[in-house]
C-alpha cells in the first residue's frame, strides 16, 4: 500500500517536472520562430534602433549551410517539447533522449554566446532570451532528472 502510494507520488512529481520543461521549451520555440521570420524576411539585415540583432543575424554564423540557425533552434525546442510531453506520460526513452538533446543545446548555446561576445561583438536580445531558456532548461533537467530517477 505504502509502495503504491510512493509510486504514485513519484509519477506525479515526474509529470510536474516534465510539464515545466515542456512549458519552458514553448518560450524558446516562440522566440526561435520570431528570429527565423526576422532572418528569412531580411528584416534582420536592416539597421534598427534596437541594437544587436541585425549585426548577429546578418553575420555568417546565423546560418548553417543556408539553413537559418534560428530555424534549427525552433526544431530543437519543438523536439524538447515533444520529448518532455511524452516523458510526462510515462515514455521512459523520451526522458533519456531529452537529457541528450538539452545537453547538445546547452553546448551549442555556449558556442553561440562565445561568438556574440568575441567574434561578432554584438549581442542580440532575442538570442540572449533563447540562451537563458536553454540554460534554465539545462539546470532544471540536471536537477530534476536526479530527483525523478531517485528511488
Amino acid at each position: 500500500m505504502v509502495a503504491r502510494q510512493r509510486e504514485a507520488e513519484k509519477a506525479s512529481s515526474a509529470a510536474t517536472f516534465y510539464a515545466a520543461v515542456a512549458l519552458l521549451s514553448l518560450v524558446g520555440l516562440a522566440d526561435s520562430i520570431y528570429l527565423t521570420i526576422e532572418h528569412v524576411t531580411g528584416q534582420s539585415v536592416r539597421c534598427t534602433i534596437v541594437a544587436g540583432c541585425s549585426e548577429v543575424l546578418s553575420s555568417p554564423y546565423a546560418a548553417v549551410r543556408g539553413m537559418p540557425l534560428a530555424l534549427i533552434g525552433a526544431g530543437a525546442y519543438f523536439t524538447v517539447f515533444s520529448l518532455a510531453t511524452l516523458a510526462a506520460f510515462g515514455y521512459r526513452l523520451a526522458g533519456k533522449l531529452l537529457v541528450l538533446v538539452v545537453g547538445v543545446m546547452f553546448l551549442t548555446t555556449l558556442w553561440l554566446l562565445y561568438l556574440q561576445a568575441f567574434v561578432i561583438h554584438h549581442f542580440c536580445q532575442f538570442c540572449l532570451l533563447s540562451a537563458a531558456v536553454t540554460v534554465t532548461l539545462t539546470v532544471i533537467v540536471a536537477m530534476g532528472r536526479g530527483a525523478v530517477a531517485r528511488p
Partner: peptide, 27 residues
C-alpha cells in the same frame, strides 16, 4: 490518455507553423 501526448504535440506543431506563416505574411 494514450493519445493525449500526441495530440498536444500535433497542436503545438500546428500553432508554431501557423504563427510562422502569419508572421512571414505580415512581414
Amino acid at each position: 490518455n494514450r493519445f493525449l501526448p500526441f495530440l498536444l504535440i500535433i497542436a503545438v506543431l500546428a500553432v508554431a507553423l501557423g504563427a510562422g506563416w502569419y508572421l512571414k505574411r505580415k512581414a
